[in-house]
Structure formats: structure tokens, C-alpha cells
Simulated assay, not measured.
Amino acid sequence: MLPNAADVGAAPTRGLQRFDPIALPVAPGIPKAPKIELPGLPAYAPQNMPSQDIIRSRATLTLKARLTEDGEPIPNGLVWRLFSAIPAIDGRATLIASSESSEANFEVPAGSYILHVGFGRAGVVKRIDFTGVKTQETITLNAGGLRLDAMVGDGQTIEPARLSFDVYSDAETESDRDLIASDVPPNKVLRLNAGTYHIVSSYGSVNASVRADIRVEPGKVTDATLQHRAALLTMKLVRELGGEAIADTAWSVTTASGDPVRESVGAFPSMVLASGDYVIVARNNDKVYQRAFAVEPGQNTDVEVLTSDLAETPDPLAGSGD
């Protein structure tokens, strides 16, 4: 006869509502195990309901930008970046979303954010407290444009490839200025925050430069033309005026007081020099030739050094040979 399931501690066949302790079988002659009180466990683990923030559709934060308070929305060229207002463990701001559209639409949860909107080199940073309700906000950049050019002499244009501009922030001293943009070509519109900027115009790469402080007005393109006092020189070592240039010639240019300005090698070296007095030195086949020359603003010319212009004194840039 088979033993009763209850007599050997087998679990009942009824559906379990709780995980109750199961009685162990007791064999004859073996003492009964001590009773252990265990907490009852539910037969299933209840599932957490999804967060309301997940199942609820997020509202949109819509952002537009304009140059001035009464200006029209900017149609293109904007870069939007939305950061968390709470910095990360390393102290850096966490980027939440970005856009390059004229109108930024961010679907983000309610909270505080740091917004940076850039327009060229103009930009603004603003704290946004988003309530989670569909919101539209327009940001005023208070920015404008700056277009630079330069001329030389009595209004002569300058070859664009030889002209560039550096734009600095306004400050009392040179060391306190920050470089905003470098090697800016002529007639390019720079987008800048409204304010005063220090401009350095370089004609060539030697010593012809001029400076000016220029104010950028909001909502406008400011045109500025700087005036250079310099000229483009092409140097030649010849045996007679109008003769053929002698190759393998090394050139040195110093000021009238002997300060080095530029060195070059070649039959036809060209350079732009600021107006003033210079000494041009040519070295060829261990011989040194020199000529004094005055640079006049806008007077581009060929400077010929004759082989008869032997230097009366040693080359000021030549070493002692030791």
C-alpha cells in the first residue's frame, strides 16, 4: 500500500498562494528536525508600474534667435547646445541636446538647463527653467557683422592673398586682449557680439601692419577699411641696370640703423615692407653688395643692386666665421 503523501511531507496538490515551508519526511528512529520559522513569501513578485515621466509624452521646448530685440528671427547659421544645469562628477557640463536648425525643438523633461546659442563668433549663454509645458522662447543675441578691407598709398587696392586681419577683444593693455579670430581674409563678414574690437591688419608677412579700434553695432554689418603705408619690392642683383638677375643670391634687409628685417634667397625675392629707410644686402660668390633704399607708400617697384655696389664694410648679418 502506498503511503499517504501527507505522511511523507509531500507538497499538497492545491495551487500555492504563498511559498510556505515544506515539511520534511520523517523516517522511523530519526529525531524530528527542529521547526524553523521562515517568513512567508508571495507566490509572485509584483511588477513596478512604469514611471509617469516615461509614458507621458514630453512637451517641446522651441527656441528661436534674433540679432536685436526688434529684429526678425535669424534664418540660418545658428548652433544650439543644451546642457544640464547640474555638472557631471568631473565638473564638466553634460550636453543634453544640440541642433543647427534656425528653430531648435528640444523634447526634454522638465528641469533647469544651460543654453548656448552660437552665431559665427557671436553667442550668448542663458539659463532655461523648463516647466515641462510646451514652451516657445526667442533669444536676443545683441550681435552684428564686421567686414574688413585695407588699401595702400593714395587708395590703391591690395592683392587679397597678401592681406589678412586679426581680431582681438577690447582691453586697456595688449596682454589683456583675447584673440577672437586670426588670418581673416578681406571682405569676409565676421559675426560678432556687439562691442568694440581691436583690429590688426597685416600686409605681407614682414613688418607692414596697422591697428585700429572698431565698434560693431547690433543688427548691422560694419564696414571698415584700414590704410597701409607700405610697398611691394622685388629685388634683383644685376651687372647693369635693367640686366638679367643673377641666381643663387642671398638677401638680407636691415633698417637704416642696422636692425634685421628679413632674409631671403633667390634671383627675384619679393616682400612687402613698411615705408621707411632700409639697407639691402646681396651676397653672391663670397662677395657682398649693398644699397640703401627708401620705401614709399604704394610705390611697388623692382630694386636693382648692381655688382658695382660692393659693400664698403663687412656684411652686417655675416658671422665672424668662428
Rank of each mutant, 00 (worst) to 15 (best):
V265R: 12
A247D: 11
A59L: 07
D315C: 09
S175G: 01
G9I: 05
M49D: 06
P316R: 09
T255R: 14
D90V: 11
M151Q: 14
E172Q: 10
Y278V: 06
P218C: 04
V8T: 11
G71K: 05
I246G: 03
G321R: 11
P185K: 09
R66Y: 06
D248L: 01
V265L: 07
L190M: 13
D166S: 15
S101P: 00
A88T: 13
T301G: 00
F293D: 10
G321M: 04
T131P: 07
T13I: 05
I86N: 12
R58P: 11
A181V: 12
E37W: 09
A27I: 00
E240L: 06
G153W: 15
L190C: 04
A318G: 15
I128A: 02
D322L: 15
P73C: 04
G276V: 01
L38Y: 11
Q52K: 10
A45Q: 06
Q136R: 13
L226K: 08
Y278A: 09
D315V: 07
A104P: 14
T135Q: 15
P21Y: 02
P185R: 06
A171T: 01
Y168S: 01
G120D: 10
R283C: 10
G266I: 04
A256R: 03
L179Y: 06
V238I: 06
M1A: 09
D70C: 00
D286V: 01
D309Y: 06
K126Y: 04
A150Q: 02
A110L: 09
Q136A: 13
S209E: 08
P25G: 04
L2W: 06
A194I: 07
K126M: 11
S102V: 01
G243F: 03
P185S: 10
R229E: 15
R147I: 03
R211D: 13
L163D: 12
E263Y: 07
K236F: 03
E107D: 09
K220M: 08
Q299Y: 01
I36Y: 06
P75E: 11
V281I: 15
A122N: 12
G153C: 08
S275G: 13
A6K: 04
R211N: 13
S99G: 00
A274R: 15
T196H: 02
S98D: 14
E72D: 12
T60N: 14
L190D: 02
E137M: 11
